[in-house]
Design a protein around this nucleic acid. Structure first.
Lengths: 89, 89
DNA sequence: TTAATATTTAGATATTTGCCTAAATATACA
DNA sequence: TGTATATTTAGGCAAATATCTAAATATTAA
C-alpha cells in the first residue's frame, strides 16, 4: 500500500498507467510518449512493477507491460472506507 | 490532483486522514497520536490542507481539522476510470 | 559470428522531502 | 498586564527521488 501510493506520486507514472489502460505496450512504446530518457522510464516502470500496479512479460526482445487492477482495487477500497459516513462532530 | 497524490504519499498523513474520518480533531489532538514533533505534524496538516484533503477552522486558541470528501471523490473517480474495461490486447 | 535493436543496471547530481530545534504568533487565563 | 497554552513559521540537515549519460545484457537479423 505504501509503495503503491509512492508509485502513484508522480505524473509520469500516472500517465503510464493511463496509457496502459488503453492497451498493453512495450517499454519502448511507453518511453516514446515522453521526453524523458529510456532509462528513466525503465526506472518508473520498475517502481510501478514493484507496486504491482503493472505487470511485465517478456516476448523476444520486447517487454510488454500491462495494467494490474488488483492493487487499484485495494486503494479504491481504502478511499471508500475514508468516505463512509463519520460520527457527527 | 498532483498535490493530492503527493499529500497521500506519506503514512503519517494517511493516518491523519483516518483519524479525521472518526471525528474532527484539533492540531494538538492529532499530534498526540504520533511520536513526531508538533511542528512536523503542523507541516503535514498544511500539506493536507493545500491538497484540500482536510479543512481547518480556528476556534479560539484551537484549530479544528476535518476531512474533506470532495478531493477524495475526485481521486476515486480517477481510479475508477483506470479500471474501466480496456480494449482487448 | 557480427551488428543492430530493446531494455535494464550503474553511477553521478540536483531537487525534494521529512524531521528536528528554536523562535514567532495568537489566544486565553490569572 | 503578564504568563501559559496552542499552533505555525524559519532554518538546517540527512535521506529519498528523478533525472541524466555510459555501460551492460538479451535478443534478433544479416
Amino acid at each position: 500500500m505504501n509503495i503503491a501510493f509512492k508509485a502513484l506520486n508522480d505524473p509520469t507514472r500516472r500517465k503510464i498507467l493511463e496509457l496502459l489502460h488503453e492497451k498493453d505496450l512495450t517499454a519502448g512504446e511507453i518511453a516514446q510518449q515522453f521526453r524523458i530518457s529510456f532509462p528513466s522510464i525503465s526506472h518508473h516502470l520498475d517502481l510501478l512493477k514493484q507496486a504491482k500496479l503493472v505487470s511485465a512479460e517478456k516476448d523476444g526482445q520486447y517487454v510488454y507491460y500491462s495494467l494490474n487492477a488488483a492493487v487499484v482495487d485495494e486503494i479504491v477500497k481504502w478511499f471508500m472506507h475514508l468516505k463512509q459516513k463519520k460520527k457527527q462532530n
